[in-house]
Amino acid sequence: MENQEKLDEFQARIDAGEKIEPKDWMPERYRQQLIRMMSQHAHSEIVGMLPEGNWIERAPSLKRKLVLLAKVQDEAGHGLYLYSATETLGIDRSELVDQYLYGNAKYSSIFNYPTMTYADICAIGWLVDGAAIVNQTMLARSSYGPYSRANVRICKEESFHKKQGYEMLAKMASGTPEQQKMAQDAVNRWWWPSLMMFGPHDSDSPNSAELIKWQVKLKTNDELRQHFVDRMVMEAEAIDVTLPDPDLTYNEETGHWDFGEIPWDEFWNVVKGNGIMNRDRMKARRSAHENGEWVREAAVEYARKKKLREEKAS
Protein backbone atom coordinates (compact mmCIF):
# COMPACT_ATOMS: atom_id res chain seq x y z
CA MET A 1 0.00 0.00 0.00
CA GLU A 2 1.25 3.41 -0.91
CA ASN A 3 0.52 5.32 2.25
CA GLN A 4 2.08 8.69 2.84
CA GLU A 5 4.47 7.28 5.38
CA LYS A 6 6.01 4.89 2.88
CA LEU A 7 6.21 7.57 0.24
CA ASP A 8 7.94 9.91 2.68
CA GLU A 9 10.36 7.20 3.69
CA PHE A 10 11.11 6.54 0.02
CA GLN A 11 11.63 10.23 -0.67
CA ALA A 12 13.94 10.47 2.34
CA ARG A 13 16.09 7.66 0.95
CA ILE A 14 16.26 9.43 -2.41
CA ASP A 15 17.13 12.74 -0.77
CA ALA A 16 19.88 11.06 1.23
CA GLY A 17 21.41 9.94 -2.07
CA GLU A 18 20.71 6.24 -1.52
CA LYS A 19 20.32 3.97 -4.52
CA ILE A 20 17.07 2.10 -4.97
CA GLU A 21 17.55 -1.59 -5.75
CA PRO A 22 15.13 -3.95 -7.55
CA LYS A 23 13.68 -5.59 -4.45
CA ASP A 24 13.30 -2.35 -2.48
CA TRP A 25 9.89 -0.86 -1.99
CA MET A 26 9.15 1.82 -4.56
CA PRO A 27 6.06 3.78 -5.56
CA GLU A 28 4.27 2.15 -8.48
CA ARG A 29 4.56 5.40 -10.40
CA TYR A 30 8.36 5.38 -9.93
CA ARG A 31 8.47 1.86 -11.35
CA GLN A 32 6.28 2.78 -14.31
CA GLN A 33 8.24 5.93 -15.10
CA LEU A 34 11.48 3.96 -15.00
CA ILE A 35 10.12 1.25 -17.27
CA ARG A 36 8.98 3.88 -19.75
CA MET A 37 12.20 5.84 -19.69
CA MET A 38 14.66 2.94 -19.56
CA SER A 39 12.98 0.91 -22.28
CA GLN A 40 12.78 4.00 -24.48
CA HIS A 41 16.50 4.41 -23.94
CA ALA A 42 17.05 0.75 -24.87
CA HIS A 43 14.88 0.93 -28.00
CA SER A 44 16.82 4.03 -29.05
CA GLU A 45 20.12 2.19 -28.85
CA ILE A 46 18.77 -0.59 -31.05
CA VAL A 47 17.07 1.60 -33.66
CA GLY A 48 20.17 3.78 -33.50
CA MET A 49 22.14 0.92 -35.04
CA LEU A 50 20.32 1.39 -38.35
CA PRO A 51 21.34 4.87 -39.55
CA GLU A 52 24.99 4.16 -38.83
CA GLY A 53 24.80 0.56 -39.95
CA ASN A 54 23.81 2.06 -43.29
CA TRP A 55 27.49 2.97 -43.86
CA ILE A 56 29.37 -0.07 -42.55
CA GLU A 57 29.55 -1.66 -45.97
CA ARG A 58 30.59 1.60 -47.62
CA ALA A 59 33.08 2.92 -45.07
CA PRO A 60 35.97 4.53 -46.98
CA SER A 61 38.89 2.68 -45.34
CA LEU A 62 39.41 -0.59 -43.53
CA LYS A 63 40.18 1.28 -40.34
CA ARG A 64 36.94 3.28 -40.54
CA LYS A 65 35.01 0.13 -41.35
CA LEU A 66 36.30 -1.58 -38.21
CA VAL A 67 35.65 1.51 -36.09
CA LEU A 68 32.10 1.87 -37.34
CA LEU A 69 31.26 -1.81 -37.02
CA ALA A 70 32.64 -1.89 -33.47
CA LYS A 71 30.64 1.20 -32.58
CA VAL A 72 27.35 -0.08 -33.97
CA GLN A 73 27.99 -3.38 -32.22
CA ASP A 74 28.50 -1.49 -28.95
CA GLU A 75 25.07 0.03 -29.43
CA ALA A 76 23.58 -3.45 -29.52
CA GLY A 77 25.45 -4.10 -26.27
CA HIS A 78 24.12 -0.91 -24.73
CA GLY A 79 20.59 -1.80 -25.72
CA LEU A 80 21.17 -5.16 -24.09
CA TYR A 81 22.45 -3.65 -20.81
CA LEU A 82 19.47 -1.30 -20.70
CA TYR A 83 16.91 -4.01 -21.42
CA SER A 84 18.49 -6.10 -18.68
CA ALA A 85 18.28 -3.19 -16.25
CA THR A 86 14.63 -2.67 -17.17
CA GLU A 87 13.91 -6.35 -16.64
CA THR A 88 14.85 -5.97 -12.97
CA LEU A 89 11.61 -4.01 -12.65
CA GLY A 90 9.62 -7.15 -13.33
CA ILE A 91 8.97 -6.94 -17.05
CA ASP A 92 10.36 -9.29 -19.69
CA ARG A 93 12.43 -8.05 -22.61
CA SER A 94 10.14 -9.70 -25.14
CA GLU A 95 7.25 -7.65 -23.78
CA LEU A 96 9.27 -4.45 -24.05
CA VAL A 97 10.32 -5.24 -27.59
CA ASP A 98 6.73 -6.00 -28.44
CA GLN A 99 5.70 -2.59 -27.14
CA TYR A 100 7.85 -0.72 -29.61
CA LEU A 101 7.57 -3.02 -32.59
CA TYR A 102 3.81 -3.37 -32.42
CA GLY A 103 2.64 -0.87 -29.80
CA ASN A 104 3.11 2.74 -28.80
CA ALA A 105 6.51 2.72 -27.12
CA LYS A 106 8.81 5.41 -28.45
CA TYR A 107 12.49 5.70 -29.30
CA SER A 108 14.61 8.75 -29.86
CA SER A 109 13.45 10.66 -32.94
CA ILE A 110 16.97 11.49 -34.02
CA PHE A 111 17.27 8.06 -35.62
CA ASN A 112 14.50 8.82 -38.07
CA TYR A 113 16.77 11.13 -40.02
CA PRO A 114 18.66 9.65 -42.97
CA THR A 115 22.44 9.21 -43.16
CA MET A 116 22.98 10.44 -46.68
CA THR A 117 26.74 10.84 -46.82
CA TYR A 118 29.63 9.37 -44.88
CA ALA A 119 30.08 12.74 -43.19
CA ASP A 120 26.76 12.06 -41.48
CA ILE A 121 28.46 9.21 -39.66
CA CYS A 122 31.07 11.65 -38.36
CA ALA A 123 28.46 14.24 -37.43
CA ILE A 124 26.44 11.61 -35.59
CA GLY A 125 29.50 10.56 -33.63
CA TRP A 126 30.24 14.12 -32.67
CA LEU A 127 26.78 15.60 -32.13
CA VAL A 128 24.44 12.71 -31.43
CA ASP A 129 26.86 10.74 -29.29
CA GLY A 130 28.00 14.00 -27.76
CA ALA A 131 24.44 14.72 -26.68
CA ALA A 132 23.94 11.14 -25.54
CA ILE A 133 27.04 11.32 -23.36
CA VAL A 134 25.82 14.49 -21.64
CA ASN A 135 22.59 12.69 -20.89
CA GLN A 136 24.12 9.37 -19.88
CA THR A 137 26.75 10.91 -17.64
CA MET A 138 23.88 12.34 -15.66
CA LEU A 139 21.96 9.05 -15.74
CA ALA A 140 25.02 7.24 -14.37
CA ARG A 141 24.11 8.96 -11.08
CA SER A 142 20.43 8.08 -11.34
CA SER A 143 18.65 6.89 -8.19
CA TYR A 144 17.76 3.47 -9.57
CA GLY A 145 20.77 1.20 -9.03
CA PRO A 146 20.54 -1.02 -12.14
CA TYR A 147 19.92 1.98 -14.40
CA SER A 148 22.81 3.87 -12.89
CA ARG A 149 25.16 0.90 -13.28
CA ALA A 150 24.09 0.30 -16.90
CA ASN A 151 24.88 3.92 -17.69
CA VAL A 152 28.27 3.75 -15.97
CA ARG A 153 29.18 0.87 -18.24
CA ILE A 154 27.76 2.63 -21.30
CA CYS A 155 29.67 5.85 -20.58
CA LYS A 156 32.90 3.92 -20.19
CA GLU A 157 32.45 2.26 -23.56
CA GLU A 158 31.06 5.26 -25.35
CA SER A 159 33.95 7.59 -24.87
CA PHE A 160 35.47 6.33 -28.13
CA HIS A 161 32.22 6.82 -30.04
CA LYS A 162 32.26 10.55 -29.86
CA LYS A 163 36.01 10.80 -30.33
CA GLN A 164 36.05 8.79 -33.54
CA GLY A 165 33.31 10.96 -35.04
CA TYR A 166 34.93 14.20 -34.00
CA GLU A 167 38.34 13.07 -35.24
CA MET A 168 37.06 12.09 -38.69
CA LEU A 169 34.87 15.17 -38.98
CA ALA A 170 37.92 17.30 -38.23
CA LYS A 171 39.83 15.48 -40.96
CA MET A 172 37.04 16.06 -43.44
CA ALA A 173 36.61 19.69 -42.44
CA SER A 174 40.25 20.28 -43.26
CA GLY A 175 40.35 17.87 -46.20
CA THR A 176 39.60 18.27 -49.90
CA PRO A 177 36.95 20.84 -50.96
CA GLU A 178 34.46 18.00 -51.48
CA GLN A 179 35.11 16.64 -48.00
CA GLN A 180 34.75 20.08 -46.47
CA LYS A 181 31.44 20.57 -48.20
CA MET A 182 30.21 17.17 -47.05
CA ALA A 183 31.28 17.83 -43.47
CA GLN A 184 29.58 21.22 -43.26
CA ASP A 185 26.43 19.90 -44.90
CA ALA A 186 26.24 17.08 -42.36
CA VAL A 187 26.67 19.49 -39.44
CA ASN A 188 23.95 21.71 -40.91
CA ARG A 189 21.53 18.82 -41.02
CA TRP A 190 22.35 17.22 -37.64
CA TRP A 191 22.74 20.30 -35.44
CA TRP A 192 19.09 21.07 -34.72
CA PRO A 193 17.98 17.45 -34.38
CA SER A 194 20.79 16.91 -31.86
CA LEU A 195 19.47 19.81 -29.74
CA MET A 196 16.03 18.22 -29.88
CA MET A 197 17.46 15.04 -28.37
CA PHE A 198 17.22 16.64 -24.92
CA GLY A 199 13.45 16.76 -25.30
CA PRO A 200 10.96 19.63 -25.13
CA HIS A 201 11.56 22.77 -23.08
CA ASP A 202 11.12 22.25 -19.34
CA SER A 203 7.82 24.14 -19.52
CA ASP A 204 6.49 21.56 -22.01
CA SER A 205 7.93 18.50 -20.35
CA PRO A 206 5.30 16.96 -18.11
CA ASN A 207 7.52 14.19 -16.68
CA SER A 208 10.55 16.27 -15.84
CA ALA A 209 9.65 17.58 -12.37
CA GLU A 210 8.69 14.16 -11.08
CA LEU A 211 11.79 12.47 -12.50
CA ILE A 212 13.97 15.08 -10.87
CA LYS A 213 12.18 14.80 -7.54
CA TRP A 214 12.98 11.09 -7.60
CA GLN A 215 16.50 11.75 -8.85
CA VAL A 216 15.98 9.52 -11.86
CA LYS A 217 17.21 12.57 -13.72
CA LEU A 218 19.37 15.13 -11.99
CA LYS A 219 19.07 17.98 -14.45
CA THR A 220 16.32 19.40 -16.62
CA ASN A 221 16.16 19.13 -20.39
CA ASP A 222 17.07 22.80 -20.82
CA GLU A 223 20.00 22.63 -18.41
CA LEU A 224 21.47 19.66 -20.25
CA ARG A 225 20.87 21.28 -23.62
CA GLN A 226 22.64 24.46 -22.52
CA HIS A 227 25.59 22.45 -21.26
CA PHE A 228 25.77 20.70 -24.63
CA VAL A 229 25.56 23.92 -26.67
CA ASP A 230 28.35 25.58 -24.67
CA ARG A 231 30.61 22.65 -25.28
CA MET A 232 29.81 22.20 -28.94
CA VAL A 233 30.40 25.86 -29.78
CA MET A 234 33.93 25.46 -28.52
CA GLU A 235 34.47 22.15 -30.33
CA ALA A 236 33.04 23.47 -33.61
CA GLU A 237 35.45 26.39 -33.51
CA ALA A 238 38.39 24.10 -32.93
CA ILE A 239 37.79 22.15 -36.16
CA ASP A 240 36.49 24.98 -38.29
CA VAL A 241 32.92 23.97 -38.87
CA THR A 242 30.04 26.42 -38.56
CA LEU A 243 27.00 25.67 -36.44
CA PRO A 244 23.93 26.63 -38.51
CA ASP A 245 22.44 29.14 -36.05
CA PRO A 246 22.88 32.86 -36.74
CA ASP A 247 21.56 33.63 -33.26
CA LEU A 248 24.38 31.88 -31.43
CA THR A 249 25.89 34.58 -29.20
CA TYR A 250 27.87 34.52 -26.02
CA ASN A 251 25.92 35.95 -23.11
CA GLU A 252 28.32 37.74 -20.76
CA GLU A 253 25.77 37.84 -18.01
CA THR A 254 24.95 34.14 -17.85
CA GLY A 255 28.31 32.90 -19.08
CA HIS A 256 26.48 30.68 -21.60
CA TRP A 257 25.83 30.69 -25.33
CA ASP A 258 22.35 31.86 -26.31
CA PHE A 259 20.90 30.04 -29.29
CA GLY A 260 18.01 30.45 -31.70
CA GLU A 261 14.54 28.94 -31.61
CA ILE A 262 14.52 25.16 -32.06
CA PRO A 263 12.18 24.06 -34.89
CA TRP A 264 9.71 22.27 -32.63
CA ASP A 265 7.15 21.73 -35.37
CA GLU A 266 9.63 19.52 -37.10
CA PHE A 267 10.38 17.74 -33.82
CA TRP A 268 6.75 16.88 -33.14
CA ASN A 269 6.24 15.90 -36.74
CA VAL A 270 9.06 13.34 -36.51
CA VAL A 271 7.83 12.12 -33.11
CA LYS A 272 4.42 11.52 -34.71
CA GLY A 273 6.07 9.23 -37.26
CA ASN A 274 6.59 11.53 -40.21
CA GLY A 275 10.39 11.62 -40.32
CA ILE A 276 11.98 10.58 -43.60
CA MET A 277 13.05 7.24 -42.20
CA ASN A 278 10.41 6.41 -39.53
CA ARG A 279 8.65 3.78 -41.57
CA ASP A 280 11.86 2.17 -42.82
CA ARG A 281 13.32 1.94 -39.33
CA MET A 282 10.27 0.16 -37.99
CA LYS A 283 10.08 -2.08 -41.01
CA ALA A 284 13.73 -3.08 -40.62
CA ARG A 285 13.37 -3.86 -36.91
CA ARG A 286 10.13 -5.78 -37.36
CA SER A 287 11.55 -7.85 -40.16
CA ALA A 288 14.69 -8.66 -38.15
CA HIS A 289 12.47 -9.78 -35.28
CA GLU A 290 10.08 -11.80 -37.44
CA ASN A 291 12.79 -13.37 -39.58
CA GLY A 292 14.59 -14.37 -36.41
CA GLU A 293 11.64 -16.19 -34.90
CA TRP A 294 12.49 -19.58 -36.38
CA VAL A 295 16.05 -19.23 -35.10
CA ARG A 296 14.98 -18.39 -31.57
CA GLU A 297 12.45 -21.24 -31.62
CA ALA A 298 15.08 -23.69 -32.82
CA ALA A 299 17.36 -22.80 -29.90
CA VAL A 300 14.52 -23.30 -27.41
CA GLU A 301 13.55 -26.61 -28.96
CA TYR A 302 17.15 -27.85 -29.01
CA ALA A 303 17.55 -26.93 -25.34
CA ARG A 304 14.37 -28.83 -24.50
CA LYS A 305 15.49 -31.95 -26.36
CA LYS A 306 18.94 -31.81 -24.86
CA LYS A 307 17.56 -31.59 -21.35
CA LEU A 308 15.30 -34.57 -22.03
CA ARG A 309 18.25 -36.59 -23.29
CA GLU A 310 20.29 -35.69 -20.23
CA GLU A 311 17.47 -36.65 -17.88
CA LYS A 312 17.07 -39.97 -19.64
CA ALA A 313 20.77 -40.68 -19.44
CA SER A 314 21.00 -40.09 -15.70
Binding site: I46, M49, L50, G53, I56, E57, K65, L69, A70, V72, Q73, A76, G77, G79, L80, Y83, A284, S287, A288, N291, G292, E293, V295, R296
Partner: peptide, 18 residues
Protein backbone atom coordinates in the same frame (compact mmCIF):
# COMPACT_ATOMS: atom_id res chain seq x y z
CA UNK B 1 28.58 -7.27 -41.38
CA UNK B 2 25.28 -6.97 -43.27
CA UNK B 3 23.70 -8.67 -40.26
CA UNK B 4 24.60 -5.81 -37.95
CA UNK B 5 21.32 -4.40 -36.67
CA UNK B 6 19.30 -7.19 -38.30
CA UNK B 7 20.19 -10.29 -36.27
CA UNK B 8 17.62 -12.81 -35.03
CA UNK B 9 18.26 -11.89 -31.40
CA UNK B 10 20.19 -9.06 -29.78
CA UNK B 11 22.81 -11.41 -28.32
CA UNK B 12 23.41 -12.99 -31.72
CA UNK B 13 23.68 -9.58 -33.36
CA UNK B 14 26.67 -8.97 -31.11
CA UNK B 15 28.15 -12.37 -31.90
CA UNK B 16 27.99 -12.03 -35.69
CA UNK B 17 29.40 -8.51 -35.50
CA UNK B 18 32.29 -9.90 -33.44
Amino acid sequence: SEWCGHGPQLEEDLAIAN
